[in-house]
Design a protein around this nucleic acid. Structure first.
Length: 257
DNA sequence: ATGGTCGGCCTCCGA
């Protein structure tokens, strides 16, 4: 069995105690992190290694940043999403660990909708679609996990009306997410759970966590060969309730074999 | 109750 988790940590430096506590408690074999918010050379590798994990890192000053943690050093396959040589934002890292291909994804937020940020989001999603298109013919097990910044359906949102104008909830964003899935990927959480109100993000503002006002935007997308092995997928709410929490909480899945 | 919260950091931007 292999346990793969994804967590937007909202700064690896600010969150290091929380991340170390979570690694110790949840014991993922592979951890896909987003919003590390630091240059690769400033990533706290020593502390992560002391916890028993090797890190592959793509960093950037102040914003974005992704990493993959695993017991053995991940074999890095790609450090950026193909399709735009001008794109310098640290949002994608693909690696192989024990025969399994994984990618950590920090998909652009896209707000405000009436700005070029929304166009960048949709273009990034089309690049991801093309990447999936290139990977599927390999017929490999792979997991693309991360902060997709997309609320797939009304039931993934406490108050759909409140999010109607948001980039995370635009019909175009949701359609692009569906298009990627419809290439043949399995969204692990929805494959195993049908309930509404299962969230992965609660805003820091307005007591969203205490009031249960969340959204589900962190997803694990599995290739057919990975989906065949899917045993479990859960959202781990515990880290969101701790002091100095990230605004996201981890999601994980287990694959047999 | 017409606000409120974080993190990084060229004190405002991004979320």
């Amino acid at each position: 069995m292999v346990k793969i988790a994804s967590w937007n940590v909202n700064s690896i430096k600010a969150r290091l105690p929380n991340v170390l506590e979570w690694l110790e408690a949840a014991k993922p074999d592979i951890a896909l992190l987003q919003e590390t918010k630091c240059l690769a050379e400033n990533f706290p590798r020593l502390e992560i290694e002391a916890a028993g994990y090797k890190a592959a890192v793509v960093g950037q000053k102040s914003y974005n940043g992704v990493a993959i943690l695993a017991r053995q050093a991940p074999e890095v396959l790609l450090e950026r999403l193909p399709g735009d040589e001008e794109d310098e934002q640290a949002r994608y890292l693909e690696a192989r660990i024990d025969g399994l291909r994984v990618a950590t994804i920090y998909l652009p937020n896209g707000n405000p909708v009436a700005s070029d940020k929304f166009g960048y989001k949709l273009a990034w999603m089309d690049r991801l679609r093309r990447r999936v298109d290139a990977l599927l013919p390999l017929e490999e097990p792979f997991v693309l996990g991360g902060d997709y910044n997309v609320i797939p359906e009304d039931r993934d949102c406490y108050d759909p009306k409140a999010w109607a104008g948001d980039a995370l909830f635009q019909p175009q964003s949701r359609a692009a997410f569906r298009t990627i899935q419809n290439l043949g990927l399995t969204e692990a959480f929805r494959a195993l759970h049908q309930e509404s109100g299962a969230y992965t993000f609660w805003d820091y503002q307005a007591g969203a966590w205490d009031q249960g006002h969340g959204i589900r935007i962190d997803h694990l997308l599995l290739s057919p060969q990975a989906a065949d092995r899917l045993q479990a997928c859960e959202i781990d709410r515990a880290p969101r309730g701790k002091p100095k929490a990230s605004d996201h909480t981890p999601i994980w899945c287990e694959l047999s074999g």
